[in-house]
C-alpha cells in the first residue's frame, strides 16, 4: 500500500507532476486581493481569514482532476482495480497523496500570506489549526468528485461544479473558526464541526469513491 503513496508523491515531485502549482496559485490569489479591494489595512485584516480559506479551497480544486485522470489515461487504474489492493484503499491513498502535495503546503504557506493581508498575529494559530483540520476533507471530497468524472474527456470543469457545493460546509466552518480566532472569540464549536465534517468524509467517502470508480471502469 505504501508503494502507491510513494509512487504518487514521486510523480508529483517530478517534471510535469504539478507539485507547487496549487501553492503558486494560492500565493497569486492572495496577492491579487489587495489590488482588488484597495489598500485599507483594516478592511484587509477583516476579510483575511475568508480570503485565505477561499484561496486555499480554490488552489485545492485546481489539482483535483489530476488525482485519477492521469492513471485512467495510461491504463494504470484498470490494472490497479485488478491488483490485490482494494479500490477503497487506492482512493484513500490517492486522497492522502493529494493532501500531502497540495493541502499541507497550503497550510504551511497560509500564515506567511496572512502577513500580506495584515492579519493580526493572534489569528495565525486558529488559521493554521482550521486549515489543518479542514483541508483533508477538501482532498477526500475532491477524490470523490474525481472518481465521478474519471472517464470524461475534459471533465475538469464538471468536476469543479460537482465538488464546489460539497465544499460549502467545510468552507463555512473553517473560515468561521479562523475569523473567530482572529477576533479573540471562542472557536471550539466551529472547530468541532469542522473536525466532524473531515472525520465523516474520511470515514465514508472512500467507499462511495470506490463504488463510482467500479461503475466508471466498466
Amino acid at each position: 500500500m505504501i508503494a502507491l503513496l510513494i509512487r504518487d508523491l514521486r510523480l508529483a515531485m517530478r517534471a510535469g507532476g504539478g507539485f507547487g502549482l496549487g501553492l503558486a496559485f494560492f500565493l497569486i490569489v492572495v496577492v491579487l486581493v489587495p489590488f482588488a479591494v484597495g489598500p485599507q489595512s483594516s478592511l484587509l485584516s477583516t476579510i483575511a481569514p475568508g480570503v485565505l480559506w477561499l484561496g486555499a479551497l480554490l488552489a485545492c480544486l485546481l489539482s483535483l482532476d489530476r488525482i485519477l485522470a492521469l492513471d485512467w489515461e495510461d491504463g494504470s487504474l484498470d490494472l490497479l482495480a485488478v491488483s490485490p489492493l482494494p479500490l477503497e484503499a487506492v482512493v484513500s491513498l490517492k486522497a492522502l497523496a493529494h493532501w500531502l502535495t497540495t493541502g499541507l503546503p497550503l497550510v504551511l504557506a497560509a500564515p506567511v500570506l496572512a502577513v500580506l493581508l495584515n492579519m493580526p498575529s493572534e489569528g495565525y494559530e486558529p488559521l493554521i489549526m482550521s486549515l489543518l483540520l479542514g483541508t483533508p476533507a477538501l482532498s477526500v471530497i475532491g477524490t470523490f468528485g474525481a472518481a465521478l468524472t474519471v472517464g470524461l474527456k475534459r471533465g475538469g470543469l464538471l468536476l469543479s461544479l460537482l465538488v464546489l457545493p460539497l465544499y460549502v460546509p467545510t468552507l463555512i466552518f473553517g473560515a468561521e473558526a479562523a475569523r473567530r480566532g482572529m477576533v479573540g472569540l471562542e472557536i471550539t464549536v466551529p472547530m468541532l464541526m469542522l473536525g466532524g465534517i473531515t472525520c465523516g468524509a474520511i470515514a465514508l467517502l472512500p467507499f462511495a469513491s470506490a463504488a463510482v470508480l467500479r461503475v466508471n471502469l466498466r
Binding site: 517530478r14 495510461d74 490494472l79 485488478v82 491488483s83
Partner: peptide, 24 residues
C-alpha cells in the same frame, strides 16, 4: 491482467515502474 494500455508512468524509470507493480 494486461490491457491495451500498459499503465506505464513516463517520468519513472523502467526499474521504478516495475518495482512499483512488484510491491503492489
Amino acid at each position: 491482467y494486461v490491457a491495451h494500455a500498459d499503465g506505464i508512468k513516463s517520468v519513472l524509470s523502467v526499474a521504478e515502474n516495475l518495482s512499483f507493480w512488484a510491491q503492489i
